[in-house]
Design a protein around this nucleic acid. Structure first.
Lengths: 166, 166
DNA sequence: GATAAGAATGAGATCCAGTCTGAAATAATG
DNA sequence: CATTATTTCAGACTGGATCTCATTCTTATC
């Protein structure tokens, strides 16, 4: 199991994750895919893609709207946030994460190396990403036996984080 | 992997699952727990407990309200549905299931033998329960290594069901 | 670089699952 | 059956998400 820091909106600028081994970053991939789908390049969508590209973990629409407003980037209307998120989801660039909280969260679809799941503290709501190869193998095996053409999976562990359990 | 029928609101009457090996049914356990918590026995709560006891899988609040209205049982107000669901969740008799759809779903907390997870068809929204011991073992092992006191977990496989994939 | 066609965006109305409130009904107890 | 606390109901309200449509921006073409 490897694990990174709790969810927080990343500042703009260079992505914090290591992309040196990738042929293209998620942002590049997203823009290519969008272009291939015949989309024009508006400012709102570009700002959103850039923001999502810098995130380590899932954000709510609210967090995205606030981050864009206060982050120095252009302000983006709520309608655009949801519309763009839907488009990106359609193109499999972004996925919804249903973490049991009230609000839906969104995060970019990662390449295999970055694929992760979530730990959720039911006390304070903190979301922590983790990865576990053994779990992924179990899911792979299971997916073949199931009466569903599996395209995706989601795993959430609920409990009390170290601060709240203390 | 074992698997049961797609989610559907079960008719009232005898529970469809096999309880012959249990010392007490979930409904009995729920009523005992409720009584121990000093609760009186109102009609709305009793109707809800009975309905949930007959379900194989998670329902939305809407489905519960409709099932009670049309199922011959007494009508129960929306406020009561949510209130009772909250109480039952508090007492660990019911758990929320965040399946990625808009609405939250609720299902009774099962004994170990009945513990299951969900397959969701992203086309038609059908929810199918499944169980997988290997997956549970992987989760068990993982839970010990994680910076969270794990109390629960949730696994959802997304994809296209046999009807929709065809 | 002007122009036209259509895509992208914003502001605000609208929807709806879920929550809250206050009054009325019901259950437990003596 | 009277008392008292719990339970329930109807309906108002909240807030995240969606929809509408007028306006602005992109891009293709000239």
């Amino acid at each position: 199991m490897s694990q990174t820091a709790p969810t927080r909106v990343q500042a703009r600028g260079k992505p914090h994750h290591d992309t040196s081994h990738s042929v293209e970053t998620w942002v590049e991939h997203a823009e290519t895919t969008l272009a291939a789908a015949g989309r024009k390049r508006g400012g709102a969508r570009r700002a959103l893609v850039e923001l999502l590209g810098n995130q380590q973990c899932a954000l709510t629409a609210q967090e995205i709207e606030d981050a864009l407003r206060h982050g120095g980037t252009r302000r983006v209307s709520r309608a655009s946030v949801y519309r763009v998120l839907d488009e990106l989801e359609q193109l499999r660039l972004v996925q919804r994460v249903g973490i049991g909280q009230r609000m839906v969260r969104y995060e970019r679809v990662s390449n295999h190396a970055e694929h992760h799941h979530h730990l959720v503290c039911d006390e304070c709501g903190t979301v922590i990403p983790f990865t576990d190869p053994a779990l992924e193998r179990a899911i792979q095996t299971l997916s073949r036996r199931v009466p569903l053409t599996v395209s995706d999976h989601e795993i959430v562990l609920h409990g009390a984080c170290q601060d709240c359990a203390a």
